[in-house]
Write a protein that binds this DNA or RNA. Sequence first.
DNA 1: ATGGCGAGAGAATCTCGA
Length: 255
Amino acid sequence: MQFATWNVNSLKVRLPQLLEWLAANPEMTAVALQETKLEDSAFPKADLEAAGYHVAFIGQKTYNGVAIVSRAPLDDVVVNIPGFDDEQRRVIAATVNGIRFICAYVVNGQAVSSDKYVYKLRWIKALTDYVAAELKQYPELILAGDYNIAPEDRDVHDPAKWVGEVLVSAPERAAFRQLLALGLIDSFREFEQPEKSFSWWDYRMFAFKRNAGLRIDHLLISKALKDRLKACVIDKEPRKVERPSDHTPVIVTIE
DNA sequence: ATGGCGAGAGAATCTCGA
């Protein structure tokens, strides 16, 4: 089975692309979506269910919004980070085929000097505590999402230009390592990968053509799943179509 | 140094993303 993460940057715009991509990926069990940008009343539940998928979602107007779209039933759905007071809709979790699948849209942070950056670090700490508790209950766990962190310089097209900037700053990278310290594994780095592998490219300046991107979308798996991990790839195809999201899906294959 | 592009809200031109 496969699990994926994809920041769709508006599900309203990207719904046809999502349906096409799911049809083209028949082994896909469940995909975690970020930036749906839809209130729950506007979520395309009927369309997705008519196409044969199970859905769980939590959203808001204009910003944020997360969802899980699955071929398998979704059990024990939990929205947001329990106990963390946050109006922004950024987290949803469900159990899929016995695996706890958590979808997170990590705060962007805007700039290292901003209030949003402070919120970002505080938010990741809350997520880390939440995932630590989830791991105790669900040893088999995947933390999927747009982390808005490029973990290492090799995840950045031009590291020199990005030094100290938001998405690559030392405190953000330290926060990412704190997630790994829970016993999570960056599934992408368990395999040999092409150099300059990225999951996001700016819409501007022909960034995709120039491969001027960042790897900020990740699938962290728990140690209990490591022996069943068979592959992790970035699927660049959806970034090539007309009117794409600026992010492209990342996919793990679990035996 | 700044904006580039795209999406949403809402009705011209903002904010926000990364």
